[in-house]
Nucleic acid binder design. Structure first.
Lengths: 162, 162
DNA sequence: AAAGATTGAACATTCAATCTTG
DNA sequence: CAAGATTGAATGTTCAATCTTT
């Protein structure tokens, strides 16, 4: 990608621009490919997409195992309506359920059901195995740690609220 | 994410699994956030999404500034129909056009128009500036290089055809 | 008026089926 | 029959508008 832009899209790329371009290309490709592999392996195994597991996980760690809809959207980097629809889908499958909040009647909680806990118990090990196979296997321990540290620096620099 | 799964989704995560989990969380978040920032900045500036620019770039570097539809889908990690629709959209805007292949009448070329070259000349610098601001700015030169090397190792390990 | 959530419309992406050419 | 490309249907995502509650 970089070599291309450097010559074709306006010329005059600096070294810094070239480096950023290459880094971006690798970043996007790596996440896309690993995501695709994970989805393909997880779907037949447990019928859940990686994003579904991510949601169930966030719920399982939350106090009372539930989250306000707005927090679902924020923590998953999803629009408000995206959160509504995600919870719709998982609620239909019995993995989460909606609950009213007594103290503020505007908020709706999404809470983990026992079925959701069960699904997560099965999906968790599969997800972890997939991540080790597709990600960890190719990197040494402190190399992985170094990459994570660099990415986290970008995240905090860009103002990501964990 | 990692702390959660370690305790909630089946327990007994190894150190290796924890590391892979954390790396994955940072990887996904970083690409999502940078992608969102890029899209938001590029859209008003030049009316193109990052993926559009990526396609125009690939075309601009290809021999004759054209690519077979199948190569579009492969190089952008898109399904065959996804490639068809992407070219549809950009052709409607006059940035690419379809052309028949005389030697094999099954193949359709997507080729860059002069309008597409013009659009890329404007978008290229904007994309590069955005990438430096959102990605490069937070990392030292050889740190960025180290991350890229690690990601590329994952890519070749996972069998990514560049 | 502002915040939380939902809905409908628009759009992008994929899968499966189809059509044409080799 | 296999490969290249396109189409229709289904799914998921977002934006803008709406409704309720604060």
């Amino acid at each position: 990608v970089a070599k291309v832009l450097e010559e074709c899209s306006g010329g005059a790329a600096t070294d810094e621009e070239r480096a950023a371009l290459q880094l971006w290309a690798s970043l996007v490709r790596a996440t896309d490919i690993v995501r695709a592999s994970l989805s393909a392996e997880l779907a037949p195994r447990c019928g859940l997409a990686p994003e579904d597991i991510e949601l169930l996980t966030r719920l399982s760690e939350a106090p009372e195992q539930r989250l306000r809809m707005a927090d679902v959207s924020r923590s998953l980097l999803l629009s408000k309506s995206g959160a509504t629809r995600l919870i719709d889908r998982l609620a239909e499958r019995g993995l989460v359920e909606r609950a009213a909040c007594p103290s503020d009647r505007r908020v709706v909680y999404a809470s983990l059901t026992s079925g959701g806990r069960e699904a997560l118990r099965e999906a968790g090990p599969a997800l972890r195995a997939g991540l080790v196979a597709h990600l960890g296997r190719h990197l040494g321990a402190h190399e992985a740690e170094a990459v994570r540290a660099a990415l986290d620096r970008i995240l905090t620099g860009e103002g990501a609220g964990v």
